[in-house]
Nucleic acid binder design. Structure first.
Lengths: 218, 218
DNA sequence: CTCCGATATGACTGCGCGGTAAGTTACCAG
DNA sequence: CTGGTAACTTACCGCGCAGTCATATCGGAG
């Protein structure tokens, strides 16, 4: 790779032409830049130009790789959704029940999101498109997370004597809202290590929840 | 007021000139239109043109009355913040403690927001300006609500044996997140009457909380 | 050396937005 | 009737954005 090209700073005109970065590597760079920008300011306030600048490339190259702003966002959603969905399903597979399962989920997510708490906002973003392929990607990714949350919630509310499915649906959203709030607080306090976020979340959720069989040990 | 002007539809060119609507009345109309649009899609996705169309007037008239998009938003925030803040402080003054106070708050808010659940989103909007007079208005309005929430939360966590002020701050945000989630669920289900929202919230929160002295009656 | 494919850029376009300027209308007082 | 004020509109502007096009560069194969 020609070091003369590599040394060219973005503030001056760059020579056109390949920099010799393989497509897969470049895609990854663009995705990383996009995830950070989307997680920082949300979809609507993210400009493709800002992502390009973050990635150190030209804007048309982003379009070359991802087709459109929505295409870029959809790829980011798929990426973040896989990470979070895999982790949450792994934890569900551990067999914990009740609030302990919820706590393990929070801890697992804190671990996955350590050093990149912004990923959460990519998935749960009120300014995201509500129609089209990107919106479909969001629905797929969040549905995966919601399904697991709903299992846990349904179990807990049923044990607590509430069989109403609408209550269960609202409670699922409340639980996800709690997770969302903790993640947003974390994004505002990036100095807090994941392990401390986990502990704090355990204390707070512990103050909220009692499993059906009695008071949580604290 | 000339009925010929009043009958002119917005789809054709309207005669210029006054329609004889007093300033205070017109301000209220514009505010109502803006609150609905802001509550529907948030600040960033709200265009002044859409508000003007909703209010049945021309866009420059909105600027004439409110100065700028931010000026309009600030007025909406003051309006919604007064309604919600007054109600929350009234309920705090009733002297209920612990989770019962939280429940009364949820119920009071459901009542105030009945028929206009969108007001919540005007105040708690991630796409809102973070600097300038409008942002100051948001901070004033939400600080009022957070102060009351923090009192309740501090009491509850302290009774539960957790004196950590950071835990209290996060828990305040979690509580407001829970309220936010219920309000957003309600905005998605406008057919649900306020009294049913209150009952449901009581059931759900009841499944979460136990006051420091024991299990809630349900 | 030439050609080709893959990787890249600068320059440009059309559109929607926030906002502005110039002109209009209705009503009331003198 | 005239002038002034308050309430209005149409037409326009500059800017930033998503997206496009024409051209450039590099490296490898033949």
């Amino acid at each position: 790779m020609p070091s003369a090209s590599a040394g060219t700073t973005r503030r001056t005109a760059r020579r056109t032409g390949t920099k010799g970065v393989p497509r897969a590597d470049r895609e990854e760079q663009i995705l990383d830049a996009a995830l950070r920008e989307l997680g920082r300011v949300g979809f609507a306030a993210t400009s493709v130009a800002a992502v390009a600048e973050r990635a150190g490339i030209s804007k048309p190259l982003v379009y070359n790789y991802f087709g459109s702003k929505e295409g870029l966002y959809g790829a980011c959603v798929d990426h973040a959704g896989d990470l979070l969905g895999d982790e949450i399903e792994r934890i569900a597979g551990l067999g914990a029940v009740g609030i302990e399962r919820g706590m393990l989920t929070l801890e697992g997510m804190a671990e996955v999101l350590d050093s990149r708490p912004y990923l959460w906002r990519v998935l749960f973003d009120p300014s995201a498109p509500t129609e089209g392929p990107a919106a479909d990607a969001v629905r797929r990714a969040t549905a995966r997370i919601e399904r697991i949350a709903e299992e846990g919630v349904t179990e807990m509310l049923t044990l607590a004597g509430d069989p109403d499915p609408v209550d269960h649906a609202v409670m699922t959203r409340v639980w996800l809202g709690i997770v969302d709030t903790v993640m947003r607080w974390w994004a505002d306090h990036p100095e807090e290590p994941a392990v401390e976020v986990s502990r704090r979340a355990r204390r707070i959720v512990g103050a909220l929840f009692v499993d059906a069989s009695g008071t949580l040990e604290r």
